[in-house]
Amino acid sequence: MNATATAGFDERLHDLLRIMASEGIRNAADGLASMIGATITVADPDARLVPISEIAALAGGPESEAVGIYLQVTGDISGQIMLVMPYPKALELADLLMDEPPGTTTQLGSIERSALAEVGNLTGTFFLNAIAKRLKVDARPSPPAVMVDMVGAVLDIIVAVCGGVGEHVLLMQGQLMRDDRAVDLDFWVIPDPATLAAFAA
């Protein structure tokens, strides 16, 4: 199964995933913009395949503090989506969402957490809509779960679930910009083998 999953990511599929990442993240930014009533643009969207063993290092090291927003996808295609950001980035994002000067938010209380959950909800839904529209399939996200913990611990969820499926996950990255302020977003998308086949078709 692993061999199939890896072999499925040929050059053509990679290009397609890049396009979908770009559309998905732009769509997510539009959703976010309408939520906060400001113009949000996206810079440098990209998609690539990453070995599971490297994802913690890419997210700042397994012990560093991070915020993870997790959604499950059901419908014609299924899988998981996780947004991961380093803790300081989550504080910046909270400032950006609530239109506060950078550095205002110093910890994540329940209001900040629910704002971030809403970001996960919106970006996840809009992102998924873009993919579903392109593939002409039905896909629905679950309500989001927000975790604040060590990167390794947050990522264990997706690692455990794909432990029996494949050795790689799809990483989609983009930068959200509001005026001159920017926040990097990483989406880890873990499609199940059937979904991957739908991507490749």
């Binding site: 913690a56 012990e63 060590m150 611990a153 947050v154």
Partner: peptide, 13 residues
């Protein structure tokens, strides 16, 4: 004796 074995960031693991 100088070694320390470390497992970082265990969640469900």
């Amino acid at each position: 004796p100088g070694d320390v074995l470390v497992a970082y960031g265990l969640g469900s693991c």
